[in-house]
């Protein structure tokens, strides 16, 4: 017995090969027929050796990398969108409303203050700027970014501070699917703790999370399920 489970993310037979034309056409088949699913409320942790394609899988699910075969189905506004075949505008809409991605470093734009960087996903969802900024500030405070940094561009921040801004930006929205690529790299223990809380809160509101964490402790605290890439390829 159980309530019908809502699959928010389903990867089916995903195949991704890099062809390096600038290096004589060398091909690197990184993902060969990967399948896995993540349901609402889950945090699935992907494991595997470095370079095995974990990051690639996450990027493909975000529409940042192009796949050569298979499907990545995400639940978006009451329907399923295949990120592999979706057109650019659809991918943008999916990113705005449903799928978030947190990578291990922040792409910094000079002149844009930290609080605006964090508020942007909410503004893109149509939330009035002032309210979006309030929530951004609250989240920055939680991540122990001091108030005097809020109106500064993260250009001058330390790596750890930049990553905290990145995390805030990734978690501020109401995305139903979150893709986390080493989000705690370069963070100290206290900040890692906040990220763990944020992940829990996301799960509690019904989001599906798929991520990689090199830190074993963090993995233990956040994972509802652990899947190795090798397993996912055989599945």
């Amino acid at each position: 017995m159980s309530e019908p489970v809502v699959p928010l993310l389903r990867v089916r037979d995903l195949a991704k090969t890099f062809t390096l034309h600038t290096q004589g056409g060398v091909t690197l088949p990184v993902l060969r027929r990967v399948s896995l699913r993540v349901d609402a409320g889950e945090c699935v942790v992907l494991t595997g050796p470095s370079g095995s394609g974990k990051s690639t899988l996450l990027r493909a699910a975000y529409g940042n990398y192009r796949a050569q075969g298979g499907q990545i189905l995400v639940r978006h506004r009451d329907r399923l969108v295949d990120m592999v075949s979706a057109g650019p505008r659809e991918v943008l809409d999916v990113r705005r409303a449903s799928v978030g991605h947190v990578s291990q470093f922040l792409r910094v734009i000079p002149r844009v203050p930290a609080e605006e960087v964090v508020a942007e996903p909410l503004v893109a969802q149509g939330i009035p700027r002032e309210r979006a900024l309030e929530r951004a500030r609250a989240l920055l405070a939680r991540l122990k970014i001091s108030e005097r940094l809020w109106r500064l561009s993260p250009v001058t921040f330390s790596g750890g501070e930049q990553q905290r801004v990145n995390v805030a930006r990734g978690f501020i929205g109401t995305h139903t699917i979150l893709l986390l690529d080493e989000p705690t790299a370069s963070l100290d223990a206290a900040s890692r703790g906040v990220v763990v809380q944020l992940i829990r809160e996301a799960r509690e509101r019904g989001a599906a999370l798929l991520g990689t964490f090199h830190d074993a402790d963090v993995r233990a605290m956040v994972a509802t399920r652990v899947v190795s890439l090798a397993e996912a390829e055989a599945a």
């Binding site: 034309h21 940042n64 990398y65 192009r66 650019p88």
Partner: peptide
Amino acid sequence: SGLTDQVLDDPQHPYTQLLVS
């Protein structure tokens, strides 16, 4: 052609790869 971040991060065409690299 495609999404900006996708074309720049995962260029498919040989010329695009050359441009990006």
